[in-house]
Amino acid sequence: MATKLRARRHRRVSPTSESRLAQWTLIGLSLLFMGVILVLPLYAVFHEALAKGIGTFFAAFAEPDAQAAIRLTLLVAAIAVPLNVIFGLAASWAIAKFEFKGKAFLITLIDLPFSVSPVISGLVYVLLFGAGSFLGPFLKSYGIEVLFALPGIVLATIFVTFPFVARELIPLMQDQGTGDEEAALSLGANGWQTFFRVTLPNIKWGLLYGVLLCNARAMGEFGAVAVVSGKIRGQTTTMPLQVEMLYNEYNATAAFALASLLALLALVTLVLKSALEWRFGDEVAAAER
């Protein structure tokens, strides 16, 4: 036994692997890069937020404008995320359970918002509802403000978070096929019963995964919302916009305090996301990101 162990220790490096030295050099290089590029900014947020003591940190949240920004961010996410969940469920049902012409094209189209710059995602709504457009003055005559108001912020947020739930569910439901649903239907369940009792339990972890990512982006969106919000203090500033305003007013500590709340949201999202991947790997695995 002892000689066997020694023999193994003295064995040459396997031909399909690298020497220990090479391995640790590559690992060290990777971790250094990730440390500088990813971990350091995260650390900096909390470091700067607490730089002037815990009192200043909490004082930042006592500001009415900060509280209004937090409320607005939660409200926007509470509208945008459920709408994209309904869309994601409908789209994945149509795409995974049926065959039709142009399906591959539709899947590509759903990913489209990912290749549009956030600023452009905001701009298109300015063109659609702003001065000089047809719709803007028309809606205004009925007292409905879209731009520089809640509806515009919600629309821009829906635009940028549009693909998240759908792109998570489509490959998952395609993997699962239609067997379970056909069994339920043949046993006399109606369409809604089949969806709620068979399909939904099958996809619940994948759905949660998509909702997590969608929500993180919805609460954190900056570029698209900056364009449509008008940045009216206390009224149309979401948390990321409030962070920017505070930062530009040289109130860095308050900016970082509010930013730390968003960073915390990002951390919670990452932890839950990883937990889902580890525990329910297969049920969220059909998605690659």
């Binding site: 990730m34 990813l38 971990v39 900014p41 995260l42 900096a44 947020v45 700067e48 956030p118 990512l213 993180a216 982006r217 609460m219 954190g220 969106e221 900056f222 570029g223 948390m239 990321p240 916009l241 962070v243 920017e244 930062y247 860095a252 900016a255 970082f256 930013a259 968003l262 960073a263 949201l265 990002a266 951390l267 999202t269 990452l270 932890v271 996301k273 990883s274 990101r289």
Partner: peptide, 18 residues
């Protein structure tokens, strides 16, 4: 897990931290 941080961290937060 941390590789996905840039997906989850709001861009404005990343901006002021960097």
């Amino acid at each position: 897990a941390i590789i996905d941080l840039p997906f989850a961290l709001p861009t404005a937060v990343a901006g002021i931290a960097l």
